[in-house]
Simulated assay, not measured.
Amino acid sequence: MDAKRGLLLVSPTAAYVILLLAAPLMTILAFSFWTQDFLAIDTTFTLDNYREAFADPIYRTLMARSLWISGAVTLVTVILAFPIAYFVSFHVPPERKALWIFLITIPFWTSYLLRVFLWKVILGFNGVLNSGLQSIGLIDEPLTFILYNSNAVVITLAHAFAPFTILPIYVALEKIDRSLLEASQDLGESKFSTFFRVTLPLAMPGVIAATLIVFIPTIGDYVTPRLVGGPNGLMIANMIQTQFLKLNNAPLGATLSVLAMCCVTAISLIFLFLNRRYLRTQ
């Protein structure tokens, strides 16, 4: 009876997941083994799409660039977010923490597209950053390496995903029992060693969550690379969009999507494995 009641309770959620997650993924996987001639889909099984994806250097270049940009964005956001989350958790009075969290979430109030355009204005050849640096005499001519390349994509995505990294790390830090830190220092550990041997390992669930929350979606972002990346900042998602919407080659676009998902899954599993080994040594 209890088993039937449990199945009844989870069945709506299971159906929702199957319809909106599993079914689209299986459809994309099936498309990757088909071919398309303009609007006609040939459902004959073939591996030609995967052969083309591995043989053409442009796809390998875009995939490598996407992984590098996603990794750089993840690293930058986590490194910058941890001190902010630590400060709010350990040094802000309890009655003011809600205000700080409120301020951190303010970027969510504005459109993602608007924020990307604002960074385009800031990083532009005659933008706010270059104009400011020239006015104070730090540079003689505008910097050209901060827009329409992978650097601009990393900067823009790091800002866009900053709240996604701060919040899970903050939640993990809030759950740490402060008496453990006091006990560590009572046993002769310095604040520095206490942080690396007690605080950081206990905060790793938040760090892991922040890392995955940023790394997984950034590799599929195509708006930011299109607007601020230029030719040298385009990612694999831009090629997938082109295959689906402009070249009428949905099977090849599906193949690139499957390969991107496989790369993200493999890297995420390796990261989780290395993190588990790190925690075991603490």
Rank of each mutant, 00 (worst) to 15 (best):
I240C: 01
L39I: 14
M235Y: 12
E141Y: 11
L167S: 11
W109R: 04
S268E: 08
H159L: 13
S32Q: 00
D37V: 11
T265W: 12
Y16V: 10
E52N: 14
L247V: 01
F33P: 03
A72W: 08
K246R: 10
R178Y: 13
I139P: 02
G127T: 08
I240S: 04
R178N: 13
F31E: 05
L147M: 12
H159F: 15
L113H: 11
R226I: 06
L103T: 05
I155W: 08
V223T: 10
A162Y: 14
R280M: 12
G124Y: 07
A85Y: 07
T165Y: 03
Q241M: 12
T61Y: 11
L113E: 08
R197Y: 12
Y170N: 06
S184W: 14
G127P: 04
Y59P: 08
S268D: 11
A22Y: 06
A72M: 13
N232W: 06
T44H: 14
L227N: 02
P24R: 10
L19N: 02
P251Q: 11
L113W: 13
E182I: 08
R51T: 14
F125A: 05
V92E: 09
K246E: 14
P205T: 06
A30N: 03
N49E: 05
L173E: 10
F108I: 12
M26D: 00
G71K: 08
I28S: 00
L269V: 15
N249G: 00
L180T: 02
A158V: 02
S193V: 15
T265H: 05
T105C: 13
F125P: 01
V92W: 07
N232C: 04
S190N: 11
G132Q: 00
A15T: 07
S111A: 14
M261F: 05
A55M: 08
F215H: 02
D186Q: 05
Y50A: 02
D48K: 14
P12F: 04
V116W: 04
Q241F: 14
I136T: 06
Y86G: 07
V76E: 03
W100G: 02
L173Q: 10
L180Y: 09
I139R: 01
P205Q: 08
I136C: 02
W34Q: 13
I219Y: 03
T199N: 01
E95C: 12
A172H: 06
V128T: 06
V128G: 00
V17E: 01
F45Y: 15
Y278W: 12
V154W: 10
R51M: 14
F125C: 01
T110E: 01
G71E: 13
F195E: 09
T46R: 10
P251S: 06
I236S: 06
A40F: 15
L138W: 15
I58M: 10
Y278N: 01
A64M: 08
Q241T: 07
P93V: 09
K191E: 13
N248E: 05
P251V: 13
T61I: 11
A172I: 03
N130E: 01
G253N: 03
Y86C: 09
V153H: 04
K120A: 12
V198D: 01
P163T: 09
A15C: 10
R197D: 04
L114Y: 03
Y86A: 09
L19T: 07
A55P: 02
R226P: 00
S179Y: 15
A15V: 12
